[in-house]
Design a protein around this nucleic acid. Structure first.
Lengths: 227, 227
DNA sequence: CATTGTGAAGCGTTTCACAGCC
DNA sequence: GGCTGTGAAACGCTTCACAATG
């Protein structure tokens, strides 16, 4: 019942599993029962061999000549990603971004209910965002302990980000999603993933600029969406 | 004056250049004139050899025995990333996220002023967010043309994301930052980067779960922040 | 003599190509 | 016949280690 995966799953694969999961879930909702690696690859925007190799790390859950059974694969990926139970999150920072994240219904629906939002700013405390009341940052340890939170979201200005991370770690958090454009230092054993919006734009800027530098002839065709 | 880079810059390097740039800019603001690859690596949370290799793609801008001149390197990275001029952006979707992004002062400051926000929802049109008035989605082509916008941000619900991308492409956009949890199809020549918040949480979930499965002994020490 | 710049080795990821199986 | 599962080749990125040099 509890088959442990055959091999350690490569990081690159872990990052793609949630993509497959979303596609499979949608296909399942549409009544699709089986999906081939070819079709799944197309929907995920990747190569079919990659899909097969990725899924092979979970075990041999496909059927030759048929494809993968959607509902079973959904179950297996969820189990592998630890999504068979909820992971409450706590958000530090009730500014623009913290509010948007808290109000974002998608999180709760996908198994990441917002257990709390905290801020230092007295004026923000007590207001309710997305059904959650903003509390004082000093309440962080209690929120984490009471709701068994292990994931924290840093949505504070850059200058406050390291302090926010330190507080999360002290409160017992072991995974951090960091929206501040800052490299956080955390103890070994704490996982950090960062989302840096300006950085993404700067990367796009690079490719735009390269395009401009090339002075390529713009093909007048191909305006509609294609692969 | 316009040294073209010696080689094509690897994608992995392009992604790190903005990180170095931010660190160098901050160091410059603090009056630091030179920085070694060792120090820069420490601040960026990477290996020193990687820093040197990354910077070597821009040319030989360091001085042996001394390090890199901060202001000169800032200039070179900016030029390489195309950040020596502004890139106005247009946001599709004036919901929670679109509003937060538009209100986020960091974009304008970093050279990505919001040229416009559009939505389909009549009730949202006309309201002002972060100094920008929300306009109807049909005005998209005019905004793009008038302000020479080449970067579009998709901040609509998943079901509307592909249509939003199609509209951006038709309006002449060639780079898209996609916040919707959907794989967008775009014509060749259009660059897409995605930011998927639930996906990030799911990746964290995987590592949390692995930790829980290991039943590792938590070292009672090391609560403070360290590298 | 501290520090860069870079060949070369090492490593992880992607892709190929096909044997194995339903 | 169609499709998975997987060794092996190819590729790209990271790290090492050291010669070059201000």
């Amino acid at each position: 019942m509890v088959d442990r995966p055959r091999r350690r799953i490569p990081e690159a694969t872990v990052i793609r599993l949630p993509v497959y999961l979303r596609i499979l879930t949608e296909a399942g909702d549409d009544g699709v029962e089986h999906l081939s690696s070819d079709r799944l690859a197309e929907l995920a925007g990747v190569n079919a061999a990659k899909v097969r190799k990725d899924l092979s790390y979970l075990g041999s859950y496909g059927t030759r000549g048929v494809g993968y059974e959607v509902s079973y694969l959904v179950y297996q990926i969820q189990r592998e990603l630890g999504l068979n139970h909820e992971w409450p999150i706590v958000i530090i920072g009730a500014g623009n971004l913290g509010q948007a994240l808290s109000g974002h219904a998608g999180f709760g629906q996908r198994g990441f209910p917002v257990a709390g939002i905290v801020d230092v700013e007295e004026s923000k405390i007590g207001s309710v965002i997305g059904g959650v009341r903003v509390r004082h940052i000093d309440d962080l340890p209690q929120i984490v302990a009471a709701r068994q939170v292990s994931i924290g979201v840093v949505a504070v200005p850059p200058s406050a980000a390291q302090d926010a991370a330190d507080r999360l770690v002290r409160a017992g958090i072991t995974s951090i999603l960091n929206f501040a454009p800052v490299v956080l230092s955390v103890p070994r054993g704490v996982t950090v993933r960062k989302v840096d919006l300006a950085l993404e734009l700067q990367i796009l800027s690079y490719y735009e600029q390269k395009r401009a530098g090339t002075l390529h002839v713009v093909p007048r065709s191909g305006t509609g969406a294609s692969a």
